[in-house]
Nucleic acid binder design. Structure first.
Lengths: 357, 357
DNA sequence: TCCCGGCGGGAAAGGGCTTTCTCTGCGGTA
DNA sequence: TACCGCAGAGAAAGCCCTTTCCCGCCGGGA
């Protein structure tokens, strides 16, 4: 691997001059030397050692991002927003997938700190886990103490800058919509209960139902992985336990798609026999059939805001931006089927029997 | 930011000793000193500067990956495979999105070289572009000359190790399936014509049709972006020009989903009135309605193979692994509708008229 | 003619870490 | 008791850059 002094030697100049030419330093260099250096660079296919540069320059430029999984559309969209701003400002992004493993998350904070990132963005749900939260906060505090900037997306645990989707309001929107359509027996396909995202969305849902004088019993909630297969499985369990369900709220769109798959397999017509509501409005939501009614979160915008927060000069107080959720009506949510409206027992049961055959 | 010498000073030892403790060097250190160092590390929240480490150690460990876009399911799956192997071997991955911009691709090769990656993996389609191909090859050659390992996935341009999905055979499979179902007027929704993936798949398709004594005229091909919206748009153009189409082959699943959307909007029933075939078999393919008939590529496995190629000791000749494509029959491809079988003109035209109303 | 200012270039000092080499001090053998 | 060998710790030499500081030289003004 050619080094700067190789280039300098070949060009017959000092490393200092070579460096100045290569980096377009403000210090003037005669055209003659400049050309010789450039020629040497080309001949040797010289590429500066990024680590040596980072070490020599003091200013840090890259930004670290920790997400659950970039290939999950939820995070893919957020990342798109992060990227957009980062690219505009000439920042490099280092993206790490924690796969929702708290330990890995902690490790990545260290790793990114070690890589001297100028800022750190954690996206995804927080955990109901005191010990972990404390550890993470300590690490983040230590990082901030050395001048690092931190922002979180959708996580309560950090006391600093944050972009918060209004999960609770979103849950409320879902609940109100379903109540408005006359649904009374609503099942929930939820993500892991340790995630604050799950509990926040549930809380909003509960509130909407409470306003109608109803509650959401635990037996109508099934917790599973926050993905397609988790949704399919949870829906199956829900249906087995409670055949008279007229609506299912999935706490994210991936789960909703799984729910749709299970419903289709069981021959239940959506929305004629049973309604489904998703959450997030990821791009594929409009392309499933029937197109998914869901609660939209401004995912890309969340990324944009978070990156701006972290790159812009620090404001006075910790800045928290709450971004609103919005209901997107498509084709999976409809009025309660007439049979269910009359009796909450007999008719749906018959339906189930026929569906499972 | 605490440095190693801060730790050493606090522990009352030399930096050398501190380094040995922290890295678990083979050189023995007394328990007393070891504990003092560890305590100092904890108190100072010390994290080694990764750049300084990389600079001081000679051996390179990270692997660079250049893909079109990780959030595109095609690449997400490949990346999953890459990750799996990399994680098993304790390698860090640096993933870069080129967004299919050749210049950016070139830049990323430099960037990753500058970051001293031990190996480089380029995934995605090659380009029909002599100049670019030559430039890329030069850069890769220069990198390999300094001991870097390179593997490409699905790209012809590189003469070294490669993992090649059998795009041509896949195209052939698609063509044969449709011929077998009796289709004679087949439209193609293709990706950018500058991509070798597009032309390879088309070539296979042509070959299958040729065996039945048919050809695939250019007017039945529409080139667009390799994504959902590209597919939707190309399908619309295809239908406008050729209403008597009984089948559409989309050259990847994203485009197929776009095609389905357009068909739905125009009220054409799939597969009763028109069949659709996808390509890749990305995870969502089974969840659209009707579930997508498609040509499966072993995406995760492609990633696994490529990473293994690059991390395993170099074999003698450049190793090229061709991975087979496989037809997955689901619900979007059916026999030619009776009307079309009789007349290739009148009936479908009527159908179109009704659909557009 | 002399001096000064400024420009273009190089020497050298880091930046934070690893690792070889060297040194000290101890126990053991002759 | 003198010497050897080795274990454990430190000194110092890089790794490859950037950047400050300094030096020599040239032109211009007095």
């Amino acid at each position: 691997m050619a080094t700067l002094s190789d280039v300098a030697r070949r060009a017959g100049v000092s490393p200092a001059t070579a460096s100045r030419v290569i980096n377009g330093s403000s210090k003037p260099v005669t055209d003659d030397l400049r050309e010789r250096v450039l020629a040497a660079v080309a001949e040797l296919q010289y590429v500066p050692n990024a680590h040596a540069q980072l070490l020599a320059r003091s200013h840090r430029s890259a930004v670290g991002v920790i997400v659950h999984d970039v290939s999950d559309p939820y995070f893919a969209e957020i990342t798109r927003g992060l990227q957009r701003v980062a690219t505009d400002r000439g920042r490099l992004l280092m993206i790490c997938n924690s796969y929702r493993d708290p330990d890995r998350e902690l490790e990545y904070v260290e790793l990114l700190r070690g890589h001297q990132v100028a800022a750190l963005i954690l996206a995804g749900s927080g955990y109901h886990d005191e010990a972990f939260t404390r550890q993470l906060n300590e690490k983040l505090a230590a990082y901030e103490a050395t001048g690092g900037r931190v922002a979180v997306i959708g996580r309560h645990e950090h006391s600093g800058d944050a972009v918060m989707p209004d999960n609770r309001a979103g849950g409320y929107l879902a609940g109100r919509e379903l109540c408005g359509l006359g649904h009374r027996t609503i099942g929930v396909v939820a993500g892991p209960r340790i995630l604050t995202t799950t509990t926040d969305r549930l809380a909003g849902l509960r509130q909407a139902l409470a306003e109608q004088g109803r509650d959401l019993p635990e037996r109508r909630i099934r917790y599973a992985e926050f993905d397609r297969d988790g949704g399919a499985e949870a829906t199956a369990r829900l249906l087995d336990a409670d055949p008279e369900l007229t609506a299912i709220v999935a706490l994210n769109d991936s789960m909703a798609i799984g729910a749709l798959a299970t419903l289709r397999a069981r021959g239940l017509a959506v929305p004629q026999q049973i309604s489904v509501l998703g959450f997030d409005d990821m791009p594929i939501a409009r392309d499933v059939t029937p197109a998914l009614t869901t609660v939209r979160l401004p995912l890309v915008d969340m990324g944009v805001r978070a990156m701006s927060l972290v790159l812009d000069a620090e404001g006075p107080a910790p800045r928290v931006e709450v971004l609103p959720a919005e209901l997107v009506r498509r084709d999976t949510a409809g009025p309660v089927p007439p049979a269910a409206r009359v009796s909450a027992g007999a008719a749906p049961r018959a339906r189930r029997a026929e569906a499972d055959s």
